[in-house]
Structures are given as structure tokens and as C-alpha cells.
Write a protein that binds this DNA or RNA. Structure first.
Lengths: 142, 142
DNA sequence: GCTTGCCCTGACGTCGGCGTCAACCCGTAC
DNA sequence: GTACGGGTTGACGCCGACGTCAGGGCAAGC
């Protein structure tokens, strides 16, 4: 199998495969013409990489999985090093989700506070003299 | 106030302030020597930018807040355009948190599945013949 | 012979938000 | 004088995971 076919079967691009090779992640044999030659195991490894990438793993973090497969194990996560990456990723995800949730609450608080301030200002404007100019920046709210 | 003082008071760097100016976000007057001159309103605007940045807002997303302040409003979020950014950010955060939570569950599932497979293999190895070689990649688990 | 289609290497571009020089100017203190 | 501590502009570096050219090769089909 050559690079174009592998890329197509894995739903990626030849550029990506060359990049992986340049990183030493997915080395390729060469045929007599100097073209890269791949087999089904390379496809397995590539699919493993893509799956993890889709999960947000960095390329380097997929390396233990690929090496595990190349060592002949049935799955990329059959090795302790892969499990360690899983656990590290879980911790990272938990931390990140926690931070994002905290930010979300802060932003939500800011929004409600700002909306209340706006409404109070609008109510004031209706009571005493004429309506004072409100902000025009941003046009009508959609 | 010159650039160094403003940077120090806002807890940032002169490089950052020059960058903001280059983006048109925080323009500066110049004194007779050509040095940038700032006032307290610039400090307010800068603090607004930094706060939002800390929340994960992109620089461009802070622009409505800064313009709102420069238009003379009491707060950066006194304008509809700022509120719209808040709302958009909330949506983005909710979507992102949702995706991350889904990934987290998938990774957790993968981990437990891989651990179970490993344990089953270890149990097998104890029963029939001699213990078959397990994976050595990754050394001892910490 | 010429086009088409695949492959090759090498190298620059992308995005955001600056960090980090380089080379220079200016005023003040020693 | 000269060293120091500010300021100025301009330009390149960084990170990750590739996209996108430029320029060339080789084989098959017409």
C-alpha cells in the first residue's frame, strides 16, 4: 500500500503521513522507487493515532500506543505506558473542565449583573425628566 | 503615565501594551519626546482587557468592552455589543464543556476496558502453563 | 510525444499573543 | 565622559499540526 491509499483509507492526507514519519511516529519502508510502503499494521497504528487525536491527545501522547502496537500487542492500550497516558489525560480533562465551569459561572454572573444594571438605568430614565441617552454601540440586540 | 508604569500597574509588560496598540485596541497619546502617554482611563481599559483575557476571551472579543469604556460608559459591559459577547462566550463554553465531558467519559471507558483486559490476561497466565510474557513497555506503573 | 496521476523533497505559511533581540535615542546621576 | 534606566521601531522566534506551494521524477495510457 502506498501513501495515497493509506491516507484515503484512514481519512487523512498524505501530508499528515509524511509529517508523522518526520516525527518518527509512523516510519515507512520504501519500495524500489523510493515510494513509501505501508501494510495493514500501519493502518491500525494510524487509526489509533487518529482516534486519540480526535480525543484531543497531542501527537507525542499517542506515541506509547503506537509503540505498543508495534511491539505486537493486540491493542495500543495493552501497555502500562498507554494506561499512564490515559490517566494523565483524565486528570488534565478534569482540571480543564473544572476551570472552564468556574469561568462559565463567572461570565454568567457578569452577564446577569450587567443586564440588571442596564435595566435599572432604563427604569430610571422613564421616571424623572426625559429619557437619557443609552448606549448605541452594538446596534439593536439580535 | 508612561508605558513602563502602566504595564507595572496592570501587571503586564510593555511589549504587551505595544502589541495592543498595534492591534488598535489601546491607542496611546504621545508626549513631546514621542513616548506613549497613558491616563487612568487607559488603566481601566487595560484591566478590562486583562480580566477578559483571563477568562479565555480572545483579544478581538475584548474590543467591544474597551470601546464601550472609551465611549464614556461606567463599565465595559454597559453596551449591548459587550452583552452579546458574553452570551456568545457562554454558548461557546457550554459547548466546549459538553464536548470535553463526553471525551472524558470515552477516555475513562477506554481506561477501564484496557485495565480489565490486562487483568484478565494476567489471570489467564496464572492458570494453564507458565506465565506468558506481558508487556514491558512503560516500566513499572507509578 | 504528451498528458495524467501518483510519488518525492524542501521550505515557507498559518494562527494568537506575545518574548526576545538589535540598534538607536534621551535625560539624569556619578 | 560614561554608565544607567527609561523610551523608540523593526523584525524574527515560538508553539502544534499540518496546508500549500515549488520543482522534479517515474509509469501508464492515448
Amino acid at each position: 500500500m502506498r501513501i495515497g491509499e493509506l491516507a484515503a483509507r484512514a481519512g487523512t492526507t498524505t501530508r499528515t503521513l509524511r509529517y508523522y514519519e518526520s516525527r518518527g511516529l509512523l516510519p515507512a519502508r520504501r519500495d524500489e522507487l523510493g515510494h513509501r510502503a505501508y501494510d495493514e499494521r500501519d493502518l491500525r497504528a494510524l487509526q489509533q493515532i487518529r482516534t486519540l487525536q480526535h480525543f484531543g491527545f497531542e501527537l507525542e501522547e499517542t506515541r506509547p500506543f503506537v509503540e505498543c502496537l508495534r511491539a505486537g500487542h493486540p491493542e495500543g492500550d495493552s501497555c502500562p505506558a498507554s494506561l499512564a497516558v490515559y490517566r494523565r489525560k483524565l486528570d488534565e480533562l478534569d482540571a480543564l473542565i473544572g476551570e472552564l465551569a468556574a469561568v462559565r459561572e463567572k461570565v454568567a454572573g457578569q452577564l446577569t449583573r450587567a443586564e440588571r444594571a442596564r435595566d435599572e438605568l432604563a427604569a430610571e430614565a422613564l421616571v424623572p425628566g426625559g429619557p437619557e441617552p443609552v448606549c448605541e454601540l452594538g446596534g439593536r440586540e439580535r
